[in-house]
Design a protein around this nucleic acid. Sequence first.
DNA 1: TCTGGGGTCCTAGGACCC
DNA 2: TCTGGGGTCCTAGGACCC
Length: 431
Amino acid sequence: MYGLIDCNNFYASCERVFNPSLNGKPVVILSNNDGCVIARSTEAKAIGIPMGEPAFKLIELIETHNVQVFSSNYVLYGDMSQRVMTTIATHVPALEIYSIDEAFLLLNGFDAIDLNKFGLNLVQTVTRNTGIPVSLGIAPTKTLAKVANKFAKKYKNYRGVAIIDTDEKREKALKITEIGDVWGIGRRYSKKLQYYGINSAWDFTQRPKSWVRHNMGVVGERTWMELRGISCLEMEVPANKKSICTSRSFGKPLAMLPEIAEAVANFTASCAEKLRAQHSYANMITVFIQTNPFSKDQPQYFNQRILALPIPTNDSTELIHFALECFKSIFKTGYLYKKAGVIVSEIIPERPLQGDLFDNRNREKYNRVMMVMDNLNALYGRQRVKIAAQGFDRKWKLKHEKLSPCYTTQLNDVLEVNANEKNPDMNATIG
DNA sequence: TCTGGGGTCCTAGGACCC
DNA sequence: TCTGGGGTCCTAGGACCC
């Protein structure tokens, strides 16, 4: 059997753990740049705040219902996620962290155990230890565990745990599950299937396998099998990323090359850090820039440049050099830019590295520099040591007007603020 | 005035190989 | 006049997830 445990209204719940006055009030969390609603408390859902809605369209609703609004605080959510996952891990033989607020559990060897009792205990323990409410679905396949999880969330009398362990329960559950709510059925397939008269997950399972294969490929066929109780998706082990992207919308539109270059350097540095964290090198780098597609009256421009790196690398200085080369080749004056991004791809393990006979860079030395930089930043706070091209202006920086304190990682923040105030020179740069 | 960010997998078709 | 068989790699596009 598989379990799927999911944190209820995760980001909103994180804010509440350290600010109990939010309990019972509608809470929403905004995307980066305070753009769209990306998480809502139950109360916020109840007053009709839709997911993904731009915040500026909600001003009235927010005022009339006294909605508590927060900028996203990923440092806090990441830390809370870790606490939740660590707690779960002590109760099961295997855990697959599927997203920041979700994990699949392997429930092998539980034949002699009352799964409901086990589930209730797990749900209560996580909530007690972390303050985050969670729901658990249990079923013979991952896709059915997802279905069960929705029921655990929806019906209060389940007390957070729902189990699909018989064909009767499976049929009953699938008949009241809309096809679009099935894991693996997105907006496109949902529309297509409804066109063919398939409205519930049950309708879908009653179609012939060959029809599903023909219309939805092997992926759709797997979903079909899983819904019929035949497991096709196993627990997965975390793999290294095959591509890494860092992109952001700017807090305000930017027109000048230097300020956007600073943003590109920062995004590249972030990609390089992630590469080093997973002990990989990239072979390819992509830089893109774009104007604001929502400004209908402004001239629009999007462009990207993909560059094959001469030697695979994860060195911030080297990657920033090539990123800026790409950026300068696509930058055009006369536009108001709203967003930029850097993607590193064709990722390979650090070892063994195929070198280049004519490469005259002292890679050993630069690797040590990166290592020292990473260690210092781990010790004294993010970006304490950085590359000169990353700059200090940060004109591109995000809007984050309603950020909550980083409750769980306060120490570093206090240190950083104090250091910046008293002695700005404490921030070192490598040039 | 204001609209997020980061990923994966599969398929079909074209180019090319022997 | 007749014109094989088997394979790989790459890319763009489409679908999905959180």
